[in-house]
Write a protein that binds this DNA or RNA. Structure first.
Length: 570
DNA sequence: GCCGTTTTCGGCCCGACTGTTTTCAGTCG
């Protein structure tokens, strides 16, 4: 059984315990689940060498339960919990404003056991008669259910980021602000986000709130208080805005950036040092004196830490690394010297090679790789050998006319079912480099897919493995393969793993980048751009690499052209 | 249920907002 499945079982235990009103245990199970989910090794192999209790958050009791799951595939404790409560009750907690207490009361007092019954009860005005409820809370329940019914999951980083930036710019201008920033998962550049967080520092909060509410795309103001407002935009996106005093801005920025676990860890460290940390500052417990608040780095410094980039603040070891002075020097946009994955008009792209070359030059790149699809991918107008050679001629011709940027001629070549590549070797040899890609037969077994990828690696012309896991965010999970073996083989064969920056892929993920780095495989970022504007997706690729702790030396795009040639020709 | 150069028992992050409240519980992030 995979770590993610084991974690899911523990999380279900946590949900049910929370529903029962049990204190503290739910958090203990969640913590253990999260650490198991993010482990670099599968528990099946880990347990053979190590004590499960060595995993943070796993003690005597949870270790035994994990053993049981590994041995039997299920957990009796969970089955018992499920028998105590109706299955649909957990759904109720997905409705905004309904937590464990409310869900349990709805069950005990109105015998409501699922979303359907909740909707019926609210529609027939049974909710408002409960003590502590009224017509407003009943209306909120109905709105919440409606929201759930048309909910399409989390928003992709690449869609949310431009929306948030436009809104930030509007508020900044309209309220004449110096201190305003994105916050939350968006500032950490997480691959998907739930809502947009904005944070402003101003001694005139009312003016900021007015500017916020007046934005043209605001559909409805959901909350408005002296320091916090919440709106829903016309496209359904929820945006939170917090305003603090200018002197508190650093503390608030810290507070609204770290993920929950990172912040809990920091506040606990503050506690140990006789201090208290909240969004207004770091204070001494005994006399409430301010220790730090104006700048984020002051907060970290007073806690004995060096500040780390927002992308790292996930409590994945950055705090320990910071204490030891071992924070990575992360890759930055300025380090990127080129893009390896761009489609032209020849296959399914929208721009000519010449337009792409000029666009790359405007970005200050030293090189750009044209990688149109290969012959078998008919749906994307894949290039026959003749058309590919025609494209090479065009590219060479352009290179004579465009100064200052090198056009690399590559191809995104299908990795066929048996691991063979979709052009003959003598054609592959003519290319500057080859990106191998799986676009078919996703449902192979783990062993078959592993062999398919390893077979592709054995081709001496293979340079980069495109979107290595095949996932599409919020739509399609990764295909099965032995990640450790494949990444290891990539390292040994000198093949790069792509970090495909297309907003719907971001594949490698942040965690996969961490794994690639650990196993020593180099990462090549490619936008997979199908139009000139999509060349901007590089921002999200670099952000994901940063979340994966990658440094310039780990990323192929950071090499200057002169050093690139050897690696591409292997 | 986990954890500990303060603790093997007693803690477990902290505050804003809402609705239904005459002082607060529940939810959320």
């Amino acid at each position: 059984m995979r770590n993610s499945e084991i974690a899911a079982i523990l999380e279900e235990v946590a949900d049910l315990l929370e529903l029962k009103g049990v204190a503290f245990k739910p958090n203990a199970y969640r913590k253990a689940a999260r650490n198991i989910r993010e482990m670099k090794q599968e528990l099946e192999t880990y347990r053979k060498k190590e004590d499960l209790r060595a995993i943070p958050g796993v003690g005597e009791a949870i270790a035994k339960k994990v053993e049981e799951i590994l041995d039997t595939g299920s957990l009796r404790y969970l089955d018992e919990l499920k028998e105590e409560l109706p299955a649909g009750l957990l759904q109720l907690m997905e409705v905004p404003d309904i937590g464990p207490k409310t869900a349990m009361r709805l069950y005990k007092e109105l015998r409501i056991t699922n979303l359907h019954e909740l909707k019926a009860a609210a529609t027939s005005h049974q909710i408002r008669d409960l003590k502590g409820f009224g017509d407003k809370s009943e209306e909120r329940v109905l709105q919440g259910i409606a929201l759930l019914e048309r909910r399409s999951g989390r928003m992709l980083l690449g869609y949310a980021y431009p929306i948030a930036e436009r809104l930030r710019t509007h508020v900044q201008g309209a309220a004449r602000l110096k201190l305003i920033s994105l916050g939350g998962s968006l500032r950490r550049m997480k691959e998907t986000i739930g809502d947009i967080d904005l944070l402003a520092g101003s001694d005139d909060a009312g003016r900021v709130m007015d500017a916020f509410a007046s934005y043209q795309d605001v559909e409805e103001v959901l909350e408005r208080g002296p320091t916090k407002s919440v709106v829903r935009l016309k496209d359904g996106t929820q945006v939170d805005l917090r305003v603090v005093k200018e002197v508190e801005y650093g503390a608030a920025l810290q507070y609204f950036t770290g993920n929950k676990e990172h912040n809990v860890e920091l506040r606990s460290m503050a506690n140990d040092k006789g201090m208290k940390l909240n969004e207004y500052g770091l204070f001494r417990k005994d006399n409430n004196q301010v220790v730090a608040r104006e700048r984020e780095e002051d907060i970290y410094r007073e806690l004995g830490l060096r500040i780390m980039p927002p992308e790292l603040r996930e409590n994945r070891g950055e705090i320990q690394a910071s204490i030891k002075g071992l924070l990575p020097k992360l890759v930055e946009m300025e380090d990127v010297k080129g893009d390896f994955h761009v489609h032209s008009l020849a296959s399914d792209g929208a721009a000519t090679i010449e337009e792409i070359a000029y666009a790359a030059k405007r970005k200050g790149y030293e090189y750009v790789g044209i990688t149109d699809h290969s012959q078998s991918l008919g749906v994307a107008n894949g290039l026959s050998v003749e058309r590919l050679r025609g494209n090479m001629d065009i590219a060479r011709n352009i290179m004579e006319r465009v100064d200052g940027v090198k056009v690399l001629i590559g191809a995104e070549v299908e990795i066929l079912e048996d691991g063979g590549l979709d052009y003959p070797d003598k054609v592959l040899k003519e290319l500057d480099y080859v990106i191998g890609a799986v676009h078919s037969k996703f449902k192979m077994s783990e062993a078959e897919m592993t062999n398919r990828l390893l077979a592709a690696f054995s081709n001496e012309h293979m340079t980069i493995l495109a979107h290595p896991t095949g996932r599409v965010l919020e739509q399609r999970g990764p295909y099965l393969f032995d990640k450790e073996r494949v990444f290891q083989a990539a390292k040994e064969g000198g093949i790069c793993l792509e970090l495909n920056a297309y907003v719907e892929r971001l594949d490698l993920s942040d965690l996969d980048c961490i794994k690639a780095k650990e196993l020593g495989a180099r990462v090549a970022i490619g936008t997979d751009a199908h139009s000139l504007s999509q060349l901007d997706y590089m921002l999200y690729g670099v952000a994901t690499a940063r979340r994966g702790w990658l440094e310039p030396k780990d990323v192929l795009n950071c090499l200057p052209l002169s050093e690139l040639v050897d690696i591409l020709s292997r």
